[in-house]
Simulated scan of single mutants.
Amino acid sequence: MMSEEWPIAAPAADRPVEPARPAGRDRLATVRRDFFLDPAARLSEQERALMTAMLDDLVATIADEIIASLPHGLDAIGGEGHDTLVAALWRRGLLDRPDLVALLLRRADEQRLSATLNLRQAPGRAPLVQRWVADSDGELAACAMTLVIARGRRRDRYGQGRLMFDDLPAEEAVALVHAVAAGLRAPLPDHPAIDRALALGAESLLSRHDEGERIDAMLAGLVRILERVGRLDDALVEDAAAEGEIALLSAVLARRAAVPEALAWDHLVAGGEGRLVLLARLAGLARPTAARLVAELGALTGVSDPVADMARFDRLGTEAVEDARGEWRLPTAFTAAREMLRRG
């Protein structure tokens, strides 16, 4: 059951629906798709609201940056408000990009899992990453401080998650910035100077995009330091799981398993059917640590029978684990094309 403390976005985060909705058969195609979606895979209202709020905030931030770069005399651009801009991009499908939606979903999953696990913690103890700020290793302390500050910037005034421009992969940043620039352009009269100004504003913003400032890149840097100082052990895995440090836990397990972090994340948050225990075996976790991981996260990530999953953990031999590791390391483009050909 979802915890009451799971953050719910402001009502304005929900996409507005026209009071006079299309009648009967005019809605049938959309209703059929919605009605037969797998209930287990559908977004909850909390997830939908949070993802919508993050997307609205991201688009508004990009629009403001572009507008701020425009020459004097083009102040009227954006005057209709960001809600109108987001609605226009939404209707035209310009926000329906798989990698962008996947990133929004990941942030929603992080917040959902962290909020639930944090309820189990004793009050008064400093969070795991904050404790490293005072570490005797200077590099670890500095990296932890940078991450704490970066996480703070990714919270709005209500404590809900935000998605920053630098968190976008380069390809998504290019597509979204140009879509926002075109959206700002759409309601204005045709004039080459306006097109040039908006295109230059978009390029100026993209020139400042720094994937090194992605929160995931910072986490990866922290994990490398933890490995250097010899702390990438089972105790860290147990602490991260117990304290709801889901993103850190995923990065730690990926590093220990020597597999792509995105695949580790997928097996962590959708851990049923043996996926979570396979990740635990790939990461070389001792059995007690794997059992604790299943106990902490299993009910939240789809593990229906922890005892059966731990039996799977015991049955996984070295050869099967190495075969799985080799499969995970294959290039994504290759495996995607292979699956398409297998389907005929």
Rank of each mutant, 00 (worst) to 15 (best):
Q130H: 12
Q130E: 15
Q130S: 15
R131N: 00
R131S: 10
A134R: 11
D135V: 00
S136Y: 04
S136V: 08
S136Q: 08
D137C: 12
D137W: 07
D137F: 11
D137P: 09
D137V: 09
G138P: 00
E139Q: 10
E139D: 08
E139F: 01
L140W: 10
L140R: 15
A141Q: 03
A142D: 09
M145W: 07
M145I: 03
T146D: 14
L147C: 03
I149A: 13
I149E: 14
A150W: 02
R151Y: 09
G152V: 02
R153T: 04
R154K: 09
R155N: 05
R155T: 00
G159P: 05
G159I: 07
Q160P: 00
G161F: 01
G161N: 00
R162D: 06
R162S: 13
R162N: 07
M164F: 04
F165C: 13
D166P: 04
L168W: 01
P169S: 04
P169M: 05
A170N: 08
E171F: 09
E171L: 15
E172Y: 01
E172Q: 15
E172L: 10
A173D: 01
V174F: 13
A175G: 01
A175P: 04
L176V: 01
L176P: 11
L176I: 09
V177E: 03
A179L: 10
A179G: 06
A181L: 03
A182L: 14
A182D: 15
G183V: 09
L184P: 05
L184T: 05
L184F: 06
R185Y: 12
R185N: 08
R185P: 02
A186G: 09
L188T: 02
P189E: 02
D190Q: 08
D190M: 12
D190C: 07
H191E: 08
P192R: 10
A193C: 04
A193D: 14
A193G: 08
I194A: 13
D195R: 14
D195Q: 05
R196Q: 14
L198D: 05
A199T: 13
A199I: 09
L200R: 14
G201Y: 03
G201A: 13
A202L: 13
S204L: 08
S204W: 07
S204V: 00
L205D: 02
L205S: 06
L205Y: 06
